[in-house]
Simulated assay, not measured.
Amino acid sequence: MRFLPDAEQRAFAASLDALLAAADTPAVVRDWSRGDHASGRALWSRVAEAGVFALAVPEACEGGLGPRPVELALAFVELGRHAVPGPLVETVTAAVLLGGADPGTAERLLPALASGGTIATVGIETARAETAGTETAGTKTAGTKAAAMKTAYALDGDVAALRLSCSPGGIRLSPGHGPVRPSLDPARRITPLTPGGELLLPGPLTDQALAWARLTTAAQALGVGLALLDQTVTHVKRRCQFGVPVGSFQAVKHRLADAKIALEFARPLVFGAALSMRPAEVAAAKAAACEAAYGTARTALQLHGAIGYTAECDLSLWLTKARALRTAWGDPHRCRALVVSAAGDRRW
C-alpha cells in the first residue's frame, strides 16, 4: 500500500500552505474568538477557492470534486498547521451527509458548500437530565424525578448558515441556535441548536459520516502537532541558558525527539486510513494523531515556560486547539474501544 502523496497531491498541499502562510492566521483566529468573523469568512472563501470543500462533494453535484479523502487529509494537515478557525470538519461532514440525501436536497444545498458560500455545522443530539420540582406557596422545591432534555450542540452555530441536527430519528435542518458558549479553544465556540426543522435524512449519523469527521479531525490534529513542534524547535534554538541554547541540552532533545516520533508514527496511520476509509482504521488514526498532538502540546508548553500560557503568545492558539481536537468526534478511549472491537471481528 502506498502512503506517500504523488506529485500533484504534494503540489496541492504546498499551494495551500503558501496561501495560509500569507494570511496571518493568528490575527484571524483572534478576531474569530472575539466574534468578529469578517477576516475568517474572507479566509474561508480563499480556502474554498482552493477546492478544499469541493473535495467532500460528489462529482455528480455542481462544483463537486470528490469524494477524495486523501486530498482532504492533506488539506486538513495544512489547515491544522496554520490553526485556521471555523467549523471545517463539520462542513465536510455535512457535505458527506448531504451526499446521501435525495437528489433534490443535494442539488439545493451542496453547491454552496463546495463554493464556500455556505458554512455548515453539525450537532449530535445528547440527553441532559433536569430535576423536576414542585411549586409550594411561591417557593420551588427540588423533586426526585428527572426529565431528560435532548439538545444538539454544534460548533460555531452562530456563523453557520446550514445547521444539521443529528438524532436517532434523523438528520434535520435546524432553524436556529441558542446563545454562544465559550469552550476550551476560544476559536471553537459552542452553540445549542434549535430543535425541529426540515427532515433531510432518516436515521442517525452513519458510521461512514462519522469516519469522515474523525479522519479530518485526525489530519487537522496532525497539522497542529507539527506546527507546535516547529515553533518549539525554533524557540529552544534561540533561548539561551547558562550561556548556551536550551536546545543543546540532552533532556530537551529527548522530549522533542519523542514528540517527533509520535507525530511521524501517526502520519502513515492518517493517510492509510484515508485510503481505506474503514471506520476502525480511521479511529486508530484519530487516536494516534490526537494523542501525538496533545503530547507535543505538553512538551511545547514545558519548553516555552510560562509564556506559553499567555494569550499574547501565538503558541496558545495551537495549544488550546490540540486539547480540543483530542476529544472532538470521539475521545481516544472511545476510538481505541472501536479498534479493539474490530480486532476481534474477522471482517477487520
Rank of each mutant, 00 (worst) to 15 (best):
R2P: 15
L4S: 09
L4N: 07
P5C: 10
A7Y: 13
Q9A: 15
R10A: 08
R10Q: 14
F12D: 07
A13N: 05
S15L: 09
L20T: 00
A21H: 13
A22P: 14
A22N: 12
A22T: 13
P26Y: 05
V28I: 13
R30T: 04
R30L: 07
W32E: 01
W32C: 00
S33K: 04
G35C: 06
L43Y: 02
L43P: 00
A50H: 12
A50G: 09
V52M: 04
F53T: 00
E59G: 14
A60P: 11
G63V: 03
G66Q: 02
V70Q: 11
E71D: 15
E71K: 06
E78D: 10
E78A: 10
A83H: 07
P85A: 01
G86R: 01
L88M: 01
V89A: 04
T93C: 04
T93I: 08
T93W: 01
A94Q: 00
A94C: 13
A95M: 06
V96D: 01
L97D: 01
L98R: 01
G104Q: 05
G104P: 09
E107Q: 13
T118C: 09
T121L: 05
E125I: 12
R128T: 08
G133A: 10
G133Q: 07
A137Y: 15
A137R: 14
A137T: 06
T139G: 03
K140P: 11
K145N: 12
A148S: 12
A148R: 05
M149T: 11
T151L: 11
Y153A: 10
L162S: 01
L164W: 03
S165W: 02
C166Q: 01
C166A: 15
L173D: 05
L173I: 10
S174Q: 02
G178M: 09
P179L: 08
L193M: 04
L199K: 05
L205D: 00
D207F: 06
D207C: 02
L210S: 02
A211R: 00
T217M: 10
G223M: 04
L226Q: 11
L228A: 08
D230K: 12
D230P: 05
F242A: 15
F242M: 13
P245S: 09
V246D: 05
S248L: 14
F249C: 03
F249T: 04
A251W: 07
K253H: 10
K253T: 11
R255Q: 11
R255K: 12
A257M: 07
A259R: 02
L263I: 13
F265N: 15
P268K: 03
L269A: 03
G272N: 02
A273D: 03
E281K: 05
A285N: 13
A288V: 11
A289L: 05
A292F: 04
A293R: 06
G295L: 06
A297C: 11
T299K: 06
H304F: 15
G305Y: 10
I307V: 15
I307P: 00
I307E: 07
G308C: 10
Y309K: 06
T310W: 06
T310D: 08
E312A: 12
C313Q: 15
S316I: 09
L317V: 12
W318C: 08
K321Q: 15
R326F: 14
T327R: 12
D331W: 15
A337E: 14
A342F: 10
A342R: 07
